[in-house]
Design a binder for these strands. Structure first.
Length: 606
RNA sequence: GGCCGCGUGGUGUAGCGGUCUAACACGCCACCCUGUCAAGGUGGAGAUCGGCGGUUCGAAUCCGCUCGCGGUCGCCA
């Protein structure tokens, strides 16, 4: 090695030793005579001093050194003089008195500061990702990610799981997200797909008798991106034979708890993890991934609003819609402008509007003076009292209500199916404005009993909500022919702080059941055989009951790192348009490359 | 694909119709400086305001289109 010690490791005990350290120039302080250089490596910073009297030539070289130069410095570790110690640095009690300095490489002035945590435009950071990753925050995140995967592997190996790799070049998934396709040269016109998840392989590993499998698996889905979605991402893929929901959920509760204690012992988490059914979650929070760090649960006054004088409410209910709301603690403090902006906000989510009712008086004995609302004159006092009671409103709280009409298309503003999504968004927005969520808290929970299928309006057929291999709940099997939308599945999600971390289920492991589901989704035998023949066949050879789970590593690490965006915990992420600004991917291929593959590119019509 | 936001020296921001010959901080360059640690001091270079078009006597500032980035809805089994 070109160094004997890491910069950040030097301490008082090294005083008197001659060491060679190597790293990057973090900062230089040139006093004309004395020169100080903070040298940085992966372990931290150490101050190097260049005395003109100690080594004049070395001192002279140090004068020409600039930020991010790569140096090798040999010298003696010395205790700092009385009064010049720096208690802010772990190495602050000592310094290296440079005897010899070698410039291993020079560096241009970086396009953004490496030595401080300034916000820099993300595109620029990605273009120079190798410099961005040199910064402390990114180094910390990369290490945290490493600690996370180390923990997971150790935890699962201790429980007798086997890590098994599955193919990167695989088959297209007929259902689900859009595939990334890879052309086959040897079979022109045929394509591989990158895995959206190793779902089928892991079930086949169960048939193979592995019993306990996991993989830290790379996956790819060609869909539009978000702060929590990258085109290629990593998930912890896991499957267990002879397991029930309880086995999987308790395993993951233990895993997540242990993980927090191992890598972020300074953060809090809830124990035990709440388990909430899908139906309950939708009713209480309007979403299947609620942020449980604060209250403001939804309340429903549809039953009362139907007889209201207020046309917006009455029409909503009479058309089969709903009137629901949340209660903002202390919300009467909101200004007219605050409420206007919240109205605009929910309209963006498909609500027709927002009705606000400030509770100025004491609930239970409200009079006209006791409520403040733009539509006060249409609202009967007993309706407001009832709403206040259901939401447990106190004096000073603000009720925010959204009404939606039934029978409208799902996405049309004012549709009843926009009520809960709007209130979910509103709840998050208000919580963010009032800072209701404890940033030190990781509020994990499990959501269970998802519906098995949902109606696809465009294709006019039932579609698997999760995927095809989710086992339906035994007691709902009779709905298969009568009311598929009511079939509950044995699927579950893990959520944390309002984000979905991953999902899983008890699987179908019998041919008949898979066929039954495929038929319900409108697939005939020939089609089923063509697409899922290998699964149907495998299930005929003694497939054991099994269940699995697949949480996203990127999201888990982002939360542990307290980052809002998974790009902050991915070494080389892509922009929203799927580009990778450093390498320039994706790129235009040559005619020759296309010819070999038997592909011709059609210009997109304008 | 829809909607919303942003795009000003190397970086982060200010300016939002004329006095902008574009300001501030950091960085950069030069000189001074032997105990600093976001060192200090003095001086200096550096942007025509993402691009195109329009409105106007006059545009960084207003409008349209476009590109890029981001957020969100659709989408993401």
């Amino acid at each position: 090695m070109l160094k004997t010690h890491y910069c950040g490791d030097l301490r008082k005990e090294h005083v008197g030793q001659e060491v060679t350290v190597a790293g990057w120039v973090h900062r230089r302080r040139d006093h004309g005579g004395l020169i100080f250089i903070d040298l940085r490596d992966r372990r931290g910073l150490v101050q190097v001093v260049f005395h003109p009297d100690d080594a004049p030539e070395t001192h002279e070289i140090a004068g020409d050194v600039r930020s991010e130069f790569v140096l090798s410095v040999t010298g003696e570790v010395a205790a700092r003089k009385e009064g010049t110690e720096n208690s802010d640095m772990p190495t602050g009690e000592i310094e290296v008195r440079a005897r010899k300095l070698e410039v291993l490489n020079e560096a241009k002035t970086p396009p953004f500061p490496i030595n401080e945590e300034t916000e820099v435009e993300e595109l620029l950071r990605l273009r120079y990702r190798y410099l961005d990753l040199r910064r402390e925050r990114m180094q910390r995140n990369l290490r945290l990610r490493d600690k996370t995967t180390i923990f997971i592997r150790k935890f699962l190996h201790e429980r007798d799981f086997t890590e098994i790799e599955t193919p990167i070049l695989t088959n297209s998934t007929p259902e689900g997200a859009r595939d990334y396709l890879v052309p086959s040269r040897m079979q022109p016109g045929s394509f591989y797909a990158l895995p959206q998840s190793p779902q089928q392989y892991k079930q086949l590993l169960m048939v193979a008798g592995v019993e306990r499998y996991f993989q830290i698996a790379r996956c790819a889905r060609d869909e539009d991106l978000r702060a929590d979605r990258q085109p290629d991402f990593t998930q912890l893929d896991l499957e267990m034979s002879f397991a029930t929901e309880e086995d999987v959920l308790s395993l993951f509760e233990e895993l997540f708890s242990g993980l927090v204690e191992d890598v972020r012992p300074d953060l809090k988490y809830v124990s035990p993890f709440p388990r909430i059914t899908y139906e309950e979650s939708m009713r209480r929070f309007g979403t299947d991934k609620p942020d449980l760090r604060y209250g403001m649960e939804l309340f429903d006054i549809s039953d009362l609003a139907g007889s209201s004088e207020f046309g917006v409410f009455r029409n909503a209910v009479e058309s089969g819609g709903a009137v629901e709301g949340i209660c903002v603690p202390g919300g009467t403090e909101f200004s007219r402008k605050d409420i206007d902006s919240l109205t605009t906000f929910v309209q963006g989510l498909g609500a027709k509007g927002l009705v606000s009712i400030g509770i100025l008086g004491q609930p239970g004995s409200l009079d006209e003076e006791g409520i403040r609302s733009p539509v006060a004159k249409y609202l009967a006092l007993d309706l407001v009292e009832a709403a206040a009671k259901r939401s447990d409103a106190k004096q000073g709280d603000l009720l925010l209500l959204v009404a939606g009409e039934g029978g409208k298309p799902k996405l049309e503003p004012g549709s009843s199916s926009r009520v809960r999504p709007s209130l979910d968004g509103l709840r998050r927005e208000v919580a963010a404005r009032l800072k209701l969520a404890d940033p030190q808290m990781l509020h994990y929970a499990f959501i269970t009993e998802f519906p098995l299928v949902e109606w696809d309006e465009d294709e006019e057929r039932w579609d698997a909500l999760h995927h095809l291999f989710v086992a339906p709940m035994e007691e709902d099997l009779h709905y298969f022919e009568t009311d598929p939308g009511r079939i509950r599945s044995r699927a579950y999600d893990t959520i944390c702080n309002g984000e979905e971390l991953g999902s899983g289920s008890v699987r179908i492991y019998r041919r008949e059941m898979l066929e039954r589901v495929l038929h319900m989704l409108g697939m005939d035998d020939a089609e089923a055989q063509k697409r899922y023949g290998h699964m149907l066949e495998a299930f005929e050879y003694g497939a054991p009951p099994h269940a699995g789970f697949a949480p996203g590593i990127d999201r888990i690490v982002a939360q542990l790192a307290q980052e809002e965006d998974i790009r902050e915990v991915i070494a080389f992420p892509k922009t929203k348009s799927g580009a990778e600004p450093m390498t320039g991917a994706p790129f235009a291929v040559t005619e020759e490359q296309l010819r070999v593959l038997g592909i011709s590119v059609v210009k997109q019509p304008e």
